[in-house]
Simulated scan of single mutants.
Amino acid sequence: MAGQTALIVGVGDGLSASLARLLHQEGYDIVLAARNIAKIEALAKETNTTSIKCDAAKTEDVNALFSSLAGRLSVAIYNPSARQRGPITDLDPVAVKHAMEVTAYGAFLVGQAAAKMMLGQSAQNGVLGTILFTGASAGVKGFPHSAPFAMGKFAQRGLAQSMARELHPKGIHVGWINIDGGIRNPGRSEAPDNPDSMLDPDAIARSYLGLINQDRSAWSNELTLRPWVESF
Rank of each mutant, 00 (worst) to 15 (best):
E190L: 12
I30D: 00
S189N: 10
D215E: 12
P227G: 06
A138D: 01
T134C: 05
L73M: 05
P201A: 12
G10N: 01
G10T: 03
P144R: 10
A34R: 09
G152T: 09
A70G: 14
Q214D: 14
F149Y: 12
F108R: 05
N48S: 15
E41H: 11
G182F: 05
R184Y: 02
V110F: 02
D180Y: 05
A38W: 03
Q25E: 11
K97Q: 13
R226A: 15
R206F: 11
S68Y: 08
G3I: 08
S162G: 15
D215C: 13
S146I: 03
I52W: 05
D200W: 02
A20W: 01
S231E: 09
M118E: 01
L128F: 14
G187V: 08
V62H: 04
L69P: 07
E101A: 15
A20Y: 03
F149W: 07
I52V: 15
P192D: 10
A82M: 08
S122E: 10
T134L: 01
T130W: 01
A155W: 00
G126F: 08
G12S: 15
G129A: 03
L22D: 07
N79W: 00
A34F: 06
A70T: 14
A34P: 06
D92W: 10
N79R: 00
K97L: 15
R35V: 11
G3Y: 08
L209N: 05
K97G: 13
A6L: 02
K53S: 15
I131H: 00
M117P: 03
A99S: 15
G129S: 12
L43C: 11
A34Y: 02
A2T: 09
D13T: 13
L73P: 02
H173P: 03
P144F: 05
